[in-house]
């Protein structure tokens, strides 16, 4: 996915300016930056929730030229937990995950066998099959987050955008999420995440740093130049340390 000269607007306000970013196909790109930098706005610009100018192309096709359904099948988006699953939701877990199949269904069409199969797989993958008949409003924050992840997987899109996917997940489920990430990447999916947990972001293939609505730096997460930029982005208040094959981040 290539993003060129992208401006993103929240109402009349320009929240992102002249962004040109390369998001490598089949890899994991993590977007990081201080609070209010515009990370979530970037994902919302890509999904057409916020209005944009500039161009976003996938395999040289401008996504503005795709119809709604084609776009919904190509790009799936996971909202921040506080944006989704309102308390006045009467949906069951199963029905919530089935909503991910809407881009594949026609009007008045009942879910097909394939739809049910995909929903079951998504439930199994996120360990939510045992709560499939419960209502969304009865779940804990972590359970709800896993259900919303299952809904995202059910879209079967090639590009997955996740805004704070680890929010409310306990360490074992964070570890599970990393395993799903690897599986998704092995299937050739492109994953873009917004993460506050820098040590998880450092596990991505590619880092995009945003500051005050502008691109600050982009590069491979293992490069020392990227690490230098990351430390500078957070004004020297973090320290990066190598532990085995992984980089960890400590606040100082």
């Amino acid at each position: 996915m290539k993003i060129s000269d992208l401006n993103v607007y929240r109402g009349p306000c320009e929240v992102l300016r002249n962004l040109t970013i390369d998001i490598p196909k089949g890899q994991w790109t993590s977007i990081i930056g201080p609070n209010g930098a515009g990370k979530s706005s970037l994902l919302q610009g890509i999904t057409n929730i916020l209005s944009t100018t500039g161009s976003i192309t996938i395999d040289d096709v401008n996504i503005q030229n795709l119809d709604r359904k084609a776009r919904a099948k190509a790009i799936a988006w996971l909202a921040q937990n506080n944006d989704a699953a309102e308390e006045f939701s009467e949906l069951t877990v199963y029905d919530t995950v089935m909503l991910g199949r809407i881009p594949h269904q026609g009007w008045l069409h009942l879910p097909s066998t394939l739809d049910h199969q995909v929903v079951q797989e998504s439930l199994n993958k996120t360990h939510t099959q045992s709560i499939a008949s419960r209502f969304l409003h009865e779940l804990s924050g972590g359970e709800k987050q896993r259900v919303l992840l299952a809904r995202l997987l059910a879209v079967q899109a090639d590009i997955l955008l996740m805004d704070e996917p680890l929010a409310n997940l306990d360490p074992p489920h964070q570890a599970d999420w990393l395993i799903w990430q690897k599986e998704l990447l092995a299937q050739g999916k492109t994953v873009v995440t917004v993460l506050h947990e820098i040590q998880f972001a450092l596990k991505a293939d590619h880092l995009v740093m945003i500051q005050q609505g502008k691109l600050y730096f982009q590069g491979a997460s293992k490069d020392s130049a990227t690490h230098q930029a990351l430390i500078a982005l957070f004004e020297g208040r973090i320290h990066l340390e190598k532990l085995g094959n992984e980089w960890i981040c400590l606040p100082i």
């Binding site: 709604r68 919904a72 989704a84 939701s89 809407i102």
Partner: peptide, 23 residues
């Protein structure tokens, strides 16, 4: 009944509903 999928989708929030390809 014809339009009811919109009501279900809206339970997930307006922004998520916009990304599922419905007008």
């Amino acid at each position: 009944l014809l339009l009811s999928p919109v009501l279900s989708v809206l339970s997930l929030g307006e922004n998520t509903a916009r990304t599922l390809g419905l007008p």
